[in-house]
Simulated scan of single mutants.
Amino acid sequence: MKAIGYKTAGAVDAADFVEFETETPDIGSHDLLVEVRGVSVNPVDTKVRERAQPEDTPKILGFDAAGVVKQVGSAVSKFKVGDEVFYAGDLTRAGTNSALHVVDERIVGKKPVALDFAEAAGLPLTSITAWELLFESLQVKENEGEGDSILIIGGAGGVGSILIQLVKQLTKLSVIATASRPETVQWVQRMGADYVVDHRKPLADQIKELGLEPRYVAALTGTDGHFDAIIDLIKPRGHVAFIDDPENLDIKAGKLKALNFSWEFMFTRSMFQTDDMDQQHQLLNRIADLVDKGALVSTVTNNLGPISVETLIEAHRRQESARVIGKNVLSGFDPVSS
């Protein structure tokens, strides 16, 4: 089968991306073999490319995917050959930038009918991250939160775009989202944000001017620069959840307010084969249903065309620009030629 990988860890221009032929992977008892029809690029792709040196063969990146099931393992019970699926993959296995891909059925959902494959591929990783952060890390309850609010730092990115929508559709919390450019302000408002503040200016002052004291903070990006403000502006006994990698995080600063701190990492379940891996299957099916009902909208802003060395490099460059709104996606390889 065809695949695209990189030969050298580091900057995108030095990574030496190549298209190559490799063996079709074998499947385990709980696995699906999926013909990949769409993929997307996430921050994790660029971080792995920068740090992980390939060994004997080019390293295949890619986590988000949507496609068609071609083969099922002996213990598979959730899917059958021909089903259309979407998922965010497993950090410990080969990536989705290939014609065929193997994935555990317990982290796979049914593809939304309303979206094509490329658009559907823009949803899984951000949706899982946003869902787990909101309902598991922050422990928000569906249909609750009247009178309270959540601050989402980095509202125009992939996770923020989904998180805003989930909060507005499934809870009663008000949403304060951060954005700094006219186009990102417009985007988060389109996603449903009730208030928008500029993360390039002091956050605590802006939120106090709104007369708000959020109970929850989703720190999606720039935590190092915003942590003092988070401690200042959050409600006592509030809860903060992080997805980024702050260099210095002195959580003792939250003691006087008795704050709760949590991490969200959507690969934890698949990486450690947790007993509740099936939760990602279930939540992806909820996401698909919400999309098909029109309650959630696609966050894809660019389809860069069929996957190739050139389009994949362009997707990595855009991801590293720190100016991505929503998600960039790619169509899969031509099934006939793959």
Rank of each mutant, 00 (worst) to 15 (best):
229 A>Q: 15
60 I>T: 15
15 A>M: 12
51 R>V: 14
324 V>D: 03
132 E>K: 10
79 F>I: 11
100 L>P: 06
102 V>P: 09
308 S>P: 10
219 A>V: 06
285 N>F: 06
9 A>L: 11
246 P>R: 02
137 S>R: 13
322 A>K: 14
86 F>H: 00
264 E>T: 06
94 A>S: 15
199 H>N: 13
181 R>E: 08
98 S>Y: 09
228 D>M: 01
141 K>E: 14
191 M>I: 10
331 S>P: 04
30 H>A: 05
229 A>F: 03
68 V>C: 12
182 P>C: 04
149 S>F: 03
51 R>Q: 13
144 E>I: 10
40 S>D: 02
108 V>Y: 07
4 I>R: 09
34 V>Q: 06
101 H>N: 14
134 L>K: 13
52 A>P: 00
36 V>Q: 05
52 A>H: 11
23 E>L: 14
48 V>R: 00
133 L>G: 12
323 R>K: 15
125 L>S: 07
29 S>K: 14
45 D>Y: 02
248 N>K: 13
30 H>F: 13
106 R>Q: 10
111 K>F: 07
323 R>A: 15
324 V>T: 12
273 Q>L: 12
313 I>G: 02
240 V>F: 10
183 E>Q: 15
140 V>I: 15
31 D>T: 02
194 D>M: 11
113 V>Y: 13
230 I>V: 09
23 E>C: 04
292 D>Y: 04
201 K>W: 10
177 A>R: 11
16 D>I: 03
191 M>V: 01
180 S>E: 06
315 A>G: 03
67 G>Q: 03
144 E>L: 09
80 K>I: 08
187 W>E: 02
15 A>V: 03
187 W>T: 04
37 R>F: 03
150 I>Y: 10
225 G>T: 05
296 L>P: 10
151 L>N: 07
296 L>M: 08
302 N>Q: 14
3 A>W: 00
71 Q>I: 06
208 K>Y: 10
19 E>L: 14
63 F>H: 12
279 Q>L: 12
163 L>F: 02
3 A>P: 05
240 V>L: 02
21 E>L: 11
304 L>T: 11
244 D>I: 06
125 L>H: 07
102 V>W: 09
113 V>D: 15
69 V>D: 06
264 E>N: 02
126 T>R: 09
282 Q>V: 09
332 G>L: 04
10 G>D: 11
320 E>G: 09
87 Y>G: 00
10 G>S: 04
319 Q>W: 00
192 G>H: 12
293 K>M: 10
308 S>T: 13
84 E>H: 13
129 T>R: 05
246 P>W: 01
31 D>F: 04
212 L>A: 06
89 G>H: 01
109 G>P: 00
218 A>L: 12
168 K>G: 03
139 Q>D: 15
37 R>G: 01
122 G>P: 09
8 T>C: 00
306 P>G: 11
314 E>T: 03
40 S>L: 05
61 L>D: 00
323 R>I: 05
190 R>E: 15
115 L>I: 06
132 E>F: 10
199 H>V: 07
84 E>G: 07
30 H>S: 08
